[in-house]
Design a protein around this nucleic acid. Structure first.
Length: 665
RNA sequence: GGCUGCGUAGCUCAGUUGGUUAGAGCACAGCAUUCAUAAUGCUGGGGUCGUUGGUUCAAGUCCAACCGCAGCUACCA
């Protein structure tokens, strides 16, 4: 018996599970269920990837702690996967004590062995939000072609790549402030020390050949050290021995595989972490990932593992990306389909089957063709496979007391079906479920042809041919049973219904090789209904509607809960200076004392207030309003006032005694 | 821009080390059939294999350039 640990890449805790995630988890789950049917021990763990600046900012926006945010999403994600029959043994979180422990352990071992070092890095810093800016939060002009609005790493216009520090007129996308160049100490894993190890490792069959080709680009070009630290504020684990340095999320994400497994071991009798993770382990570790994250899993991760005295992965299974009707998933086209939206209208096994026909065990992209999806499922699954049971069951029930014949009517047909198991097993093992499905539907074609040739409905009237009819229909049921077993990794719920119909124990792979003889079966009930194209249209419509709603945000709701209200940080502020703004006929620029700091706020009150008379008075401001770029500068908040506008504007004023910085509750 | 991979009938794909008239399923058309969730069987139409050029007795298959798609390009998770 093989002992196998399997993972899918960790979904981010910053959004809902969508079709792209489902592709990966369904592919993984099919492989896992196949291994289990073969009698192997196969543990499947996953987790939400929770850390990073994005989580921190999202939680801030919602006015909750990151912990609250990520736990809510984790529960949602786990539920989506469960409803698609994805059989995780554990769906955990990277924000866990186990993960912190393994991160520290791995880091400490790497440091002790001289695989880490620190160096000062110059990085752009947002003085308003008080944090260092990742490339994705920076925009500016391309240093080569000057194009507007380019991100901090490369230019969409001319294709140049550069450092964020080279951007011309850089701007923080969080505050629109001009970033400052600041020095900070960063921690690095000295990847070049692992160059020889990685060259050897990537040449094994742990990675697909095309992946090895891609990796050769980095390996021959020379590996760079890997920056594994981020400065506070950051939502993550603090690096041992530091005050304000945190592990970069890509350091702790793959360690999350180990942590999720450890968490499972702690609750499972007989499951030992060390059996799977020591360097001499005989167990297997398989990672399923998309081709977008090859470098993390095939360079950093094996290097980190080998440098910290853990085993390296047996195999990294890399798949291509999902397109819908030939294009990237898009919210406005209605093709950025969330798992939850799909489930409201369609059976999860439709998707499992359709995607299974697409997997080839390679890194080619896969297209979700909307019409193709409907046709494929209806024609193959309902028209071919299930139809065999449906057309034979009636005869068995009505004429033979629901009992199958005692012998095989056609040895040749049964031989073809029952002997396909080995070839199909190889296809499943290599991840080529597309070819496996094609072989299985070809077997279904054989079955349907066989039944058509023997015309049981005609011969039933002839008493001399009753045994033949019994034999033909019984063999039909047996063919169906074998196909249900072959398809069980893909269609677990259908297989379960088939087991009920056949009155048998849960099907194992080897059951396809031995027929059911002289055995009573149940009445047949439809195992699958056809896809209604209208249901799919509804999914697209709903997805489009979600996109519109999301962009309209929560502006339209009439009432808010107390929690929503508490997300707004109202504060008392004192006007230190007030000035006219050149070129603005409604605005005044205010300098406000907010207690611990000062801010600049633009207020549209020029028509009602003389700036000179404002100085010294107290006002109420929204302190956590997203900084807004205006024509004349960035406004860092909003002063509260009542009235229709023009001359009729009335500032809210706290009574005497209030101090700048006090929160309004 | 560089790198990896892909581009074969309307759709989804198969085409092994280059070798006789390029295959399958779905869709479409005709016929047959009626047991089955309008399911099944038989027959048929449909492709200058992304483009251009090259190597070769012979290229979908090898080479080059170009076009299109996806991903990566190390601080987006």
């Amino acid at each position: 018996m093989r002992r196998i640990l399997v993972t899918s890449a960790l979904p981010n805790a910053n959004g809902a599970i969508h079709l792209g995630h489902m592709l990966e988890h369904i592919q993984t789950d099919i492989w896992v269920r196949f291994q289990r049917m073969m009698g192997n021990q196969c543990i499947y763990v996953c987790a939400d990837d929770t850390h990073g600046t994005a989580t921190m900012l999202a939680a801030e926006r919602e006015g909750v702690t990151p912990e609250v945010l990520i736990e809510r999403l984790r529960a949602e994600h786990a539920e989506d996967f469960r409803r698609f029959y994805v059989s995780h043994d554990n769906y955990y979180s990277t924000h866990s004590p186990e993960n912190e422990r393994y991160n520290s352990l791995i880091y400490t071992r790497l440091a002790e062995r001289g695989y880490t070092y620190t160096a000062d890095v110059e990085q752009l810093y947002d003085p308003v939000r008080k944090l260092f800016l990742a490339d994705r939060y920076l925009k500016g002009n391309c240093p080569r072609c000057g194009a507007d609005d380019q991100y901090g790493d490369n230019c969409q216009e001319c294709g140049a790549t550069y450092d964020a520090t080279e951007l011309v007129n850089p701007r923080s996308m969080l505050s629109d402030a001009e970033p400052e160049l600041r020095n900070s100490t960063h921690y690095f894993v000295d990847l070049p020390q692992f160059a020889d190890f990685l060259k050897e490792w990537t040449a094994t069959d742990a990675v697909q050949p095309e992946v090895a080709n891609k990796l050769a680009e980095w390996l021959t070009g020379g590996l760079k050290a890997w920056d594994i630290s981020r400065d506070a504020p950051y939502f993550g684990f603090r690096i041992p021995g530091t005050e304000d340095k945190y592990f970069y999320v890509w350091m702790d994400a793959p360690v999350g595989y180990m942590a999720s497994f450890q968490h499972l071991c702690d609750r499972t009798e007989g499951l030992e972490f060390d059996d799977f993770w020591t360097p001499d382990s005989q167990a297997e570790v398989h990672h399923f990932i998309g081709k977008d994250i090859i470098n993390f899993h095939c360079l950093f991760w094996p290097a980190v593992l080998s440098g910290s005295d853990f085993r390296t992965p047996t195999k990294v299974h890399v798949h291509g990306m999902l397109t819908v009707d030939g294009k990237q998933m898009s919210k406005s086209r209605g093709t950025f389909i969330n798992a939850g939206t799909y489930l409201e209208h369609l059976d999860p096994e439709y998707l499992r089957y359709y995607l299974a026909t697409k997997f080839g065990g390679n890194t080619d992209d896969m297209d979700f063709g909307l019409d193709d999806f409907v046709q494929r499922v209806n024609a193959d699954l309902v028209g071919k496979v299930v139809n065999i049971a449906s057309r034979c069951a009636g005869f068995i029930g009505k004429n033979f007391g629901g009992r199958l014949a005692g012998e095989i009517h056609d040895a040749e047909l049964w031989g073809a079906v029952s002997s396909a198991g080995d070839e199909l097993a190889e296809l499943y093992e290599s991840g080529d479920t597309g070819r496996a499905v094609r072989r299985i539907t070809a077997l279904a074609d054989l079955g349907n042809r066989y039944i058509a040739e023997h015309e049981p409905w005609k011969h039933l009237k002839d008493p001399d041919r009753r045994d033949e009819v019994h034999g033909v229909c019984s063999l039909g049921i047996n063919v169906f049973r074998a196909l249900a077993a072959y398809l069980k990794p893909i269609l677990p719920a259908m297989a379960e219904k088939a087991e009920g119909f056949l009155r048998v124990e849960p099907l194992a792979w080897r059951d396809a090789a031995t027929p059911l003889l002289d055995h009573e079966i149940d009445r047949f009930r439809p195992l699958f209904t056809r896809i209604d194209k209208k249901a799919l249209d509804k999914v697209i419509e709903a997805t489009r509607a979600e996109a519109v709603e999301a962009s309209a945000a929560s502006r339209e709701s009439n009432t808010v809960g107390i929690d929503d209200f508490q997300t707004i940080d109202l504060r008392v502020a004192k006007v230190l200076a007030a000035n006219f703004v050149d070129g603005a006929d409604k605005l005044l620029e205010l300098n406000l004392d907010v207690g611990d700091h000062q801010r600049r706020v633009f207020a549209g009150i020029r028509g009602a207030y003389d700036p000179a008379k404002l100085v010294g008075r107290l006002v109420v401001i929204v302190a956590n309003l997203e900084p807004r770029k205006m024509r004349f500068g960035v406004s860092e908040g909003m002063v509260l006032a009542a009235g229709p506008g023009g001359r009729d504007i009335f500032l809210l004023a706290p009574d005497t005694g209030a101090e700048p910085g006090m929160q309004v509750t």
